[in-house]
Design a binder for these strands. Sequence first.
DNA 1: TACCGCACTATCCTTTCGTATAGGTTTTGT
DNA 2: ACAAAACCTATACGAAAGGATAGTGCGGTA
Lengths: 204, 204
Amino acid sequence: MRVLIADDHDLVRDTIAAFLGQGGEVETATATSLPQVLEKVAADGPFDLVLLDWDMPGMGGLDGLRRTIDANGEKTVAILSGTAPRKVAQDAVEAGAIGFLPKTMGATSLMNAVRFMAMGEVFVPAALMAEEPEGPEHPLARTLSARELQVLEGLCRGESNKEIARTLDLQEVTIKLHVKTLCRKLEAKNRTQAAMIAKEAGLF
Amino acid sequence: MRVLIADDHDLVRDTIAAFLGQGGEVETATATSLPQVLEKVAADGPFDLVLLDWDMPGMGGLDGLRRTIDANGEKTVAILSGTAPRKVAQDAVEAGAIGFLPKTMGATSLMNAVRFMAMGEVFVPAALMAEEPEGPEHPLARTLSARELQVLEGLCRGESNKEIARTLDLQEVTIKLHVKTLCRKLEAKNRTQAAMIAKEAGLF
DNA sequence: TACCGCACTATCCTTTCGTATAGGTTTTGT
DNA sequence: ACAAAACCTATACGAAAGGATAGTGCGGTA
């Protein structure tokens, strides 16, 4: 079984290569950038499996993945990532990747996953997919002050301005102001929409 | 490798057993209910893998899974299900199952998955986990009329009563009434809370 | 037939929300 | 030290929401 391992970090790349290579079952090749990957694929024919680092020179996200798939064939390219957000894994598989390997995986698990993918089965760690999809964490929340977040939380509980004021020990008018600010920042036209946007974003 | 297959449907059970058995790599045993599973485990020692049908006599959901894990050891029991809702898979893995197999899986994929799990790796189909978790579909929505659902949808978009009335071609007062009814049925104290509850339930 | 639930409309009233304007404090950065 | 920004409070007003009560029409059912 021939596997091409592409990662710009020498340590990671060589460790994985050494590990997969031991026992002689797997023949490994390595690359440190996407151009090098395409070059090696073109030169040494299609590999049984290509492991692509997600944060690698020339990758550019899904584009690099697609180009590698075009070059090496479908169901032969897997993504290797250190940061391991669920969304990347999902997008990669949807784009045609055969699997997704977080660098936090244990060595034997990694070996098993490689064998599994070489058999043509999609592999994604169950633990990773079990995470709740909290995708848009703070696209908007970052611009909100602490107070505003507290008020927003009250909105999401369906509380009135008066109730929020009581729990935060502020005046009702102050809450009104914060609600107004929230609606402006979240591009909502009223409290209900603001609450829905917050909910959608996964806050609370 | 010794695998115990438990399913109350003769066809399913025997098909899987026959398939896994061919080639001689896997030695199969079968059972048709949870008591029979526990009995066989007690008699023939721990199996390398136990496949448990989720909708089987005596299972009773996670309880049957836990009892089987207690009897046969950790990381040796997988769930087999025809209905394949994401939540079951997630709960099962969290409860200590080594994997989850929908009966819709292809034969070779199933074989691969069995081998994979026998090596101690958790297996859950990536496609299944990619589904958005829509868990509580209609715990409350069932009691709502068609009109009420339309109004609720408007609430979730943060629209005013007037706006909802316009899009549904009704009077504003009528919307007020529906909102009131919605709040009663959803146990919300205002429109915002009603919208949040709807969102939480996965509607819209 | 009478009854009941559902949907719709109506009027009246109170509370809450949303906006504007105007000032105050504290914190932050230049 | 000063300006800018964020935070808090205050008053006031129109719009919207929420509640109560009452009445109409429709379809299904006893």
